[in-house]
Design a protein around this nucleic acid. Structure first.
Lengths: 242, 242
DNA sequence: ATTTGTATTATGTCATACATATTATGATAT
DNA sequence: ATATCATAATATGTATGACATAATACAAAT
């Protein structure tokens, strides 16, 4: 009975699984890179000794992952995989678990805290002006309280990501946005941000962040951002402990 | 001729595209979430008025994205999509373009800069001890110079991510690792990190980061981390300007 | 009660045929 | 000769029907 332990499980991979792996091998063996055309489905099928169906499903997977692009009715070529794109289709807050949502919300805060150096490195006058406009529009409608309407919030922080000049980061935050909104709304239901007590009596507004971005340093900006995000940090850390 | 502008392009979506969207709608309409079983392929096919082939391809896409799990020969159920998993298969530095690589490298630095608050919030004595071990092992073999072997580097920073207690972040960094290594190696070829001149004459070692994590604050830690990463920041920003 | 056989079921795989869009090529008209 | 229009060739897209296979439940057997 004990001897059964020696028996290693046989590969239970489906044909499609195997073909997918073989295809990836094939691309590597032949040094195929983005832009290169690949053989047609039928050729793969006959050479691999499987039906076109199987080849097609394997190719479809790689296409779904963004590794292959299908020129309709003409052929397929390898493609530079688009990392972010895969997220987009599944980044639906209603389908993600609460734990993942929490993680993603935290991730966004980490990004905001960590991007300071890139902002200062890449900021331009034009962008500062645009940010200025956003803040002014905000001030015109705001009551001076801590709570902003969600769209103003999004506009301001979105602009920051844009200034970072990192496309991947920018698109990534675009994906995190629905999550942010989702959690934000849930959060503001629980308690009233207007009433929130900032540790030093004042809260850091978008205006202050902007001024800081203009004349400050990455270091001062990080500290300002930390205080700007304080309600969120507080919320996360408190809830984690209760 | 001008009137042609009014003509909006007809939907060029393939049947599979449409079915994929319909399926997603269906899940929402019926309030289906992770764990819930979904109708079988044939039922979808007859009800949608398309062949099983099309339904199957649409389902396969969602499966590839991790939205659906197929219990072999028994049926399919909705699944909590695994955000990170999709990355893993395509995160091959040789297949990613240099621009994306640069973005991802930057992204990793942003994460390291931004995670301080979470480290201080979640750190435990046990983890500090483990980090201590890592640093000691490192010091035993190191010459005291700025350059560390890659695996020590990975061990230390990997531990930090672990301390953050954010699974998504942790797995994300695991994916970024190959990119980091890839860029790191290219970087250290260009110039010698041993010779690197830190702005204040000293460089921040892992030991210092650890001590800071023990007795400092998120704020001091961020500043320490910034200086620890200074060679990388410098490299990125210099190259961007030339 | 545990094991073993059996029917059922939904997915996995196969084979074939036809539809459709793209491109190239050649035919036609001005 | 240039531009426009048919035509054929090609590879993917879609449809259909069939059978294989694995998971499960339940009956049968020891």
């Amino acid at each position: 009975m004990e001897r059964l332990k020696k028996l290693k499980p046989v590969d239970t991979l489906s044909l499609v699984d195997k073909v997918e792996l073989r295809l990836l091998e094939f691309f590597k063996e032949n040094n195929l890179g983005p832009g290169d055309p690949i053989p047609k489905e039928l050729d793969f099928a006959t050479n691999l000794g499987v039906s076109r169906t199987v080849v097609r499903e394997a190719l479809l997977r790689l296409r779904t992952l963004g590794l292959i692009e299908s020129k309709k009715h003409r052929g397929m070529i390898l493609k530079q995989p688009d990392i972010i794109n895969n997220f987009e289709r599944i980044m639906d807050p209603t389908l993600l678990g609460t734990k993942t949502l929490k993680n993603l919300f935290e991730l966004r805060m980490i990004l905001e805290m960590g991007m300071a150096d890139f902002l200062f490195e890449h900021k331009t006058q034009k962008e500062l002006d645009e940010l200025e406009e956003i803040v002014e529009a905000e001030e015109a409608t705001s009551t001076g309280k801590a709570r902003f309407s969600l769209d103003k919030e999004v506009a301001f922080h979105g602009k920051l990501y844009q200034i970072s000049k990192n496309d991947t980061l920018q698109r990534f935050q675009g994906l995190l946005l629905p999550v942010f909104e989702y959690v934000y709304l849930k959060e503001t239901k629980d308690r009233d941000l207007d009433e929130y007590h900032y540790t030093k009596g004042t809260f850091v507004t978008h205006r202050m962040l902007l001024d800081n971005l203009k004349v400050g340093t990455p270091e001062t900006f990080r500290n300002a951002m930390r205080r700007h995000l304080e309600p969120h940090f507080d919320h996360i850390f408190k809830n984690g402990k209760k």
